[in-house]
Amino acid sequence: MSKGHDRLKVLTTVGEVFAVAIEFERTARDFYVALAPKVSKSIRYLVEELAEEEQNHFDLFTAMAARADMAGVLAAEIQRPASDRKFSDCVHLPDLGEHPDDQAVLQYALMREHAAMEQYRALADETPAGSLRDLFAYLANEETKHKNELEAVYYDTVHSGGV
């Protein structure tokens, strides 16, 4: 890590990180739900699956934030990771056009998952060993798995047929 990276760090609380994460998942879910009727039925499954996945994440975060034993954790101050900006940017909705195709949807989804993965991994790296660090590591892992699955779908969809 460079010196410049260190200088960018500022403190934030776990509660804030969670709030952004919940918002991140919610906007994505709403985006996919709204997109589904617009795309051709042939690729609708893709958008629907993505919406469902985001809903699962949203539920997970909400449930976590609501737990009584989380109050102390949420108040804890932690370093804001460098990837935070990129992560927050994803809350903004992209313009995929009127009738996006499968490749466009997949590229967007991949970009989001990648940002989330990096965000949680960075948070885990910044947090001292303990249950909080385990939580971020778990989330990073979840997003990585999801990203991997999407990449496989991308390869199958876009690259197969090249044989």
């Binding site: 051709s40 039925k41 042939s42 609708r44 499954y45 969809t157 876009v158 690259h159 197969s160 047929g161 090249g162």
Partner: peptide
């Protein structure tokens, strides 16, 4: 030369919606 897709637009919207995918 990475991959190909089927040009299913010719099915028309009605048939596309009617078919299971």
């Amino acid at each position: 030369a990475i991959g190909q897709a089927a040009g299913v637009d010719m099915l028309g919207e009605g048939l596309t919606e009617a078919l299971e995918w």
